[in-house]
């Protein structure tokens, strides 16, 4: 029982693998979560133009480097999927860990950035802008951590040539995490 393939992995009532449908379903809910948060930010940002003063204290360089890191990690996970399809498990494994490393770099940069901001007196309670900043970036960082953990778990299976389709599933999720950052970056770092 414990070693058999879960029914959901092979069943395809909807015309596509259930696992992939589930990932898209998760992404659909995430669109509403992040979309709602960003729309609230946008409404208040338009209402209070002086928020530009607060956003001028965010570190554009750190945000830019993190954009580069996430875009590059998106490339490594799509390549991991490519090699997983060809059952080249060592290449797929290496690329999954390159993506995890990208996530780690992102978190380290984010940690340095937040430490500097907190030391400068910009905390989550400083103003409504900073509340949004830490909530949106923090929620996104939690998604990065979740993605890294899942990739670590999937990489073990990949080495054993098991559940190779999961590389594609985690890839779709990771690209979504990248997509969210693509919108967070101009909103929090560029619009000053």
């Amino acid at each position: 029982m414990g070693t058999t393939t879960p029914i959901a992995t092979t069943r395809s009532v909807t015309g596509m693998p259930t696992g992939r449908l589930a990932v898209w379903w998760v992404i659909g809910s995430e669109i509403v979560i992040f979309g709602g948060l960003l729309m609230c930010y946008l409404m208040l940002r338009l209402k209070f133009p002086h928020w530009a003063l607060n956003s001028s204290h965010t570190n554009t360089f750190a945000g830019g480097v993190n954009t580069f890191v996430l875009l590059t990690s998106s490339l490594s996970i799509v390549l991991a999927h490519y090699y997983a399809e060809r059952k080249e498990e060592l290449k797929a494994f290496g690329l999954i860990w390159a993506t995890i490393f990208g996530g780690l770099c992102f978190l380290v940069i984010k940690g340095i950035e937040w430490t500097t901001e907190i030391q400068n007196g910009f905390t989550i309670t400083s103003s409504l802008f900073w509340s949004f900043y830490y909530t949106a970036a923090g929620l996104h960082a939690l998604h990065v951590i979740a993605g890294m953990c899942l990739m670590g778990w999937i990489s073990i299976d990949v080495l054993q040539k098991k559940n190779m389709h999961r590389v594609e599933l985690i890839g779709i999720y990771w690209h979504f995490v990248d997509l969210v950052w693509i919108f967070l970056f101009p909103l929090l770092y560029i619009a000053k």
């Binding site: 058999t4 393939t5 992995t9 693998p17 059952k87 299976d157 098991k162 559940n163 594609e168």
Partner: peptide, 11 residues
């Protein structure tokens, strides 16, 4: 035991 779901990738 879990197998690679070939049909999804063929698509």
């Amino acid at each position: 035991m879990a197998e690679y779901v070939a049909h999804s990738h063929d698509e």
